[in-house]
Simulated assay, not measured.
Amino acid sequence: MSIFSRRHGTLVPIHEDNAHTKDWLVLLEAATVVGQDRDKLRVALTTQDRKLVKKRRLFRKPEYFLVLDGYDPRIHALYFCPQLYKNEDGSLVPLSGPEIGQLMAQALEGGAIEKSPWYEPADCVPKDPVIKASPGMEFDSLVVDAADPKASGPAPLRAVAAPDKPKN
């Protein structure tokens, strides 16, 4: 990569643990659909391909950034999700990216902040994230039941105790 090359897109800071995984990247969008019958969250992007930028600073750990076109922290929330599977006829079938995104949107819909879909151009970046997690919600122990195709409401959540992690 050249020193003078241009990056197209917004640099989104990510944790170094997520920099080199093959997890699904799910970008959720809140407060962009108007009307009576609408979901609070919309899946804007699901992909396993990503463009990373690594910035090195003197006497510090390197920082990792993800390059995303059109990312706006006022309406977007970024999540990493491992490959999910569903049980069909006794065999595990991997879910596609859009299906994983829909499950995440249904699970996080209760925490989405209700606000107007417009904002002033001079508005600064919000202090609170678009999706607020409840105090007891841990994604390591979150189980999402797939919604019935007939049901239009959000899928119910069940909390499951996370297994004990071995200490190194």
Results as ranks from 00 to 15, higher is better:
His8Thr: 15
His8Ala: 15
Gly9Lys: 08
Thr10Arg: 15
Leu11Ala: 13
Val12Glu: 01
Val12Gly: 07
Val12Tyr: 05
Pro13Phe: 02
Ile14Thr: 08
His15Ala: 14
His15Trp: 11
Glu16Lys: 15
Asp17Glu: 14
Asp17Asn: 15
His20Thr: 10
His20Pro: 04
Thr21Ala: 07
Thr21Ile: 11
Lys22Arg: 15
Asp23Leu: 11
Trp24Ala: 08
Leu25Pro: 01
Leu25Val: 14
Val26Met: 02
Val26Phe: 02
Leu28Pro: 02
Glu29Asp: 14
Ala30Arg: 11
Ala31Phe: 10
Ala31Cys: 10
Val33Gly: 03
Val33Asn: 06
Val34Ala: 01
Gly35Cys: 00
Gly35Asp: 00
Gly35Tyr: 03
Gly35Glu: 01
Asp37Asn: 14
Asp37Met: 11
Arg38Val: 15
Lys40Arg: 15
Lys40Asp: 04
Lys40Phe: 00
Arg42Ile: 07
Val43Leu: 07
Ala44Trp: 10
Thr47Arg: 05
Gln48Asp: 06
Gln48Lys: 11
Asp49Phe: 11
Lys51Val: 10
Lys55Ala: 06
Lys55Leu: 09
Arg56Asp: 06
Arg56Glu: 12
Arg57Trp: 05
Leu58Met: 12
Phe59Pro: 08
Phe59Gly: 09
Arg60Tyr: 07
Pro62Lys: 08
Pro62Leu: 01
Tyr64Gly: 02
Phe65Ala: 08
Phe65Met: 04
Phe65Cys: 05
Leu68Val: 10
Asp69Tyr: 06
Gly70Asn: 08
Tyr71Leu: 11
Asp72Leu: 08
Asp72Glu: 05
Pro73Lys: 01
Ile75Tyr: 08
His76Met: 07
Phe80Lys: 06
Cys81His: 06
Pro82Glu: 13
Pro82Arg: 14
Pro82Val: 12
Gln83Lys: 15
Gln83Pro: 04
Gln83His: 07
Leu84Cys: 08
Leu84Tyr: 10
Tyr85Ile: 03
Asn87Leu: 15
Glu88Gln: 11
Asp89Trp: 09
Leu92Met: 11
Leu92Ile: 03
Leu92Arg: 11
Pro94Ser: 11
Leu95Gln: 07
Leu95Pro: 03
Leu95His: 00
Ser96His: 01
Ser96Pro: 06
Ser96Val: 00
Gly97Arg: 09
Gly97Asn: 06
Gly97Ile: 04
Pro98Asn: 06
Pro98Met: 09
Glu99His: 09
Glu99Phe: 00
Ile100His: 03
Ile100Thr: 12
Gln102Cys: 03
Leu103Tyr: 08
Met104Trp: 01
Ala107Trp: 02
Ala107Ser: 02
Leu108Arg: 13
Leu108Glu: 00
Leu108Cys: 02
Glu109Ala: 14
Glu109Leu: 07
Gly110Arg: 07
Gly110His: 10
Gly111Ser: 01
Ala112Thr: 04
Lys115Ser: 07
Lys115Gln: 12
Lys115Ala: 07
